[in-house]
Write a protein that binds this DNA or RNA. Structure first.
Length: 292
DNA sequence: ACCCAGGTGGCTT
DNA sequence: AAGCCACATGGG
């Protein structure tokens, strides 16, 4: 069975880019969504405030004027992008519920009030967050771009650059440590290769969130934090609460935890933010990484 | 030269 | 269970 994620060959050959519009969009800001650390392939912001991204093999230029989201894209279709940007979810409710439970989070929500948790491809998230460990966001992006250029499908010239899809599982699984070492991935080469091979045969983990979490952690190179990121961004498991160095600082500064009391932070998030933990975490992370 | 980044694995107490 | 440390890379 093929575990590669789906592509739409007919659309890919349609070089005339289509326009898709979504009207009356609230609680939405492209910079918040695309620069809050959840995705790594929206890396060009043009002078007019539009962003260029590559999503599941589709090219996209996104523009938002405050009410209407306009996408120039060569594929996916309306339903795909509606889902990707999580437009069905009412974030006004989520935000007021978070503030009702804890007014300390209000400044973070104000600072990133247009954040939405994208519904991204699991496989891409799996590999991207393996790369993220002990790394910074600009370099994570470079690593992923290098992988895509070397192993991903060439998609064409789009807004000033050659664009490549994120590699398919098979494309990475057929590579080698030797080959990967040229891409500045450091010691993560082995993690990436073994994850690709494993994903190709096993596919995405299933079962209860406990079981999923356990399966993810059994990948070499995935620990608690990365597993939580994959759960949150790759499976839309909103109760995930990834704790990295930034969140540790936040939990120390804003909530009085000792910096290394990860367990306490995790329990607090579970009890305090519950099913919205992942979204709370994202407002907080964005707030702290952006200020000064 | 050092410290840090969306940490983890492995080894030692 | 908790505390170290190395790990590869590049920017400050």
């Amino acid at each position: 069975m093929i575990k590669d994620f789906k592509r739409n060959p007919e659309m890919m050959e349609d070089k005339a880019n289509g326009i898709i519009e979504f009207n009356d969009i609230k609680d939405f800001a492209l910079d918040n969504i695309l620069e809050c650390g959840q995705c790594f392939r929206w890396n060009d912001e043009l002078e007019d405030g539009t962003y260029i991204g590559i999503v599941e093999g589709y090219l996209c230029r996104a523009k938002f004027d405050g009410t209407t989201l306009t996408l120039e894209t060569n594929g996916g279709g309306r339903d795909f992008w509606f889902d990707y940007f999580d437009l069905k979810t009412d974030y006004s409710n989520i935000k007021s519920e978070l503030i009702r439970n804890d007014d300390r989070i209000e400044p973070a929500i104000k600072a990133g009030s247009g954040i939405r948790i994208l519904r991204q491809n699991f496989w891409e998230v799996l590999i991207s967050f393996i790369i993220s460990q002990n790394n910074n966001i600009p370099r994570i992006k470079k690593c992923i771009e290098a992988l895509s250029v070397k192993y991903g499908e060439y998609l064409g010239h789009f807004y000033g650059r050659e664009r490549y899809a994120f590699p398919l599982p098979s494309e990475l699984a057929e590579s080698s440590i030797n080959e990967l070492e040229g891409l500045k991935l450091g010691y993560r080469c082995e993690y990436i290769l073994s994850a690709a091979k494993r994903y190709l045969t096993e596919g995405a983990p299933s079962g209860s969130s406990e079981e999923i979490y356990k399966t993810l952690m059994s990948y070499h190179g995935i620990g608690t934090k990365v597993a939580n990121c994959i759960g949150l961004f790759g499976l839309h498991n909103l109760s995930s609460f990834p704790i990295d160095v930034w969140v540790r600082r936040i939990m120390h500064d804003m909530y009085g935890f000792k910096e290394n009391d990860i367990k306490g932070m995790q329990n607090f998030a579970k009890g305090h933010f519950g099913e919205l933990g992942g979204i709370a975490q994202q407002y907080l992370f964005n707030y702290y990484t952006k200020k000064e």
